[in-house]
Computed example of a mutant assay.
Amino acid sequence: MSVAERLSRIRKYLGLSQKDMGRRVAVSGTTWQNYELDNAAPNAHVLARLSDEGFDINWVLTGAGEMRKDGALETKSVAGFAELPPREIGREKLAGGNYVLIPRYALRALPREGGAAATTMEDVSLNEALAFRRDWIERELGARPADLIVVEMTGDAMLPTLVPGDLLLVDTSAPRMRGGGLYAFNLGGALAVRRLQARLDGGLTVSSDNAALYPPEDIEQAALERVKIVGRVVWRAGRL
Rank of each mutant, 00 (worst) to 15 (best):
L130S: 07
V100N: 01
T172C: 10
G114K: 09
L196G: 03
R91Q: 10
D70W: 02
D147K: 01
T62S: 13
Q33M: 14
M158V: 00
T62C: 08
S77D: 11
R176I: 02
G65I: 07
M67Q: 10
A157F: 03
K93V: 12
F132S: 01
R68G: 07
L107E: 08
N43R: 14
L101C: 05
L126F: 07
L141K: 02
M21Q: 12
D147T: 12
N186I: 08
L50R: 07
N58M: 06
D218A: 13
I229A: 04
R195H: 12
R87A: 07
A106V: 07
A190G: 04
S173C: 07
R23E: 15
R176F: 00
A4Y: 13
I57T: 15
Q33R: 15
M21T: 13
L169P: 04
E140V: 03
E66S: 14
L162E: 01
V206R: 03
I219P: 15
D70R: 13
E138Q: 11
E152V: 15
A192W: 05
V193L: 00
V170P: 08
L159Y: 10
R104Q: 11
P215T: 11
L162Y: 08
V170K: 01
S77H: 11
A116C: 03
G181F: 02
L110A: 13
E36G: 04
E217L: 12
L141R: 02
N58C: 06
L167C: 01
T75R: 07
P103T: 05
G202Q: 02
G71H: 10
L168T: 05
F55C: 09
L37D: 14
L110V: 15
D147R: 03
A109H: 12
F55W: 06
L61C: 09
T119Q: 14
V27K: 02
A131E: 08
P103Q: 04
L101W: 06
R23Y: 14
L200A: 12
L14M: 14
G96Y: 03
D166E: 01
Y105R: 04
G155C: 05
V193G: 02
M153W: 05
A72W: 04
L196H: 05
L73Q: 14
E88H: 06
R87I: 12
S125Y: 13
G238P: 05
M21Y: 10
F81G: 04
R139D: 13
E140G: 00
L240R: 11
L50C: 13
A48D: 15
N210W: 02
D201C: 08
G15L: 07
L196P: 11
A44L: 14
K76P: 00
L159K: 07
E53P: 10
R236S: 10
R134I: 04
L50N: 07
K69I: 04
R178K: 10
G22I: 06
R6H: 13
N127E: 15
Y214M: 01
Y35F: 15
L16E: 13
E113G: 08
D166W: 01
G63L: 05
R236D: 01
T119V: 15
K12S: 13
N34F: 10
L200F: 11
A118S: 12
S77E: 11
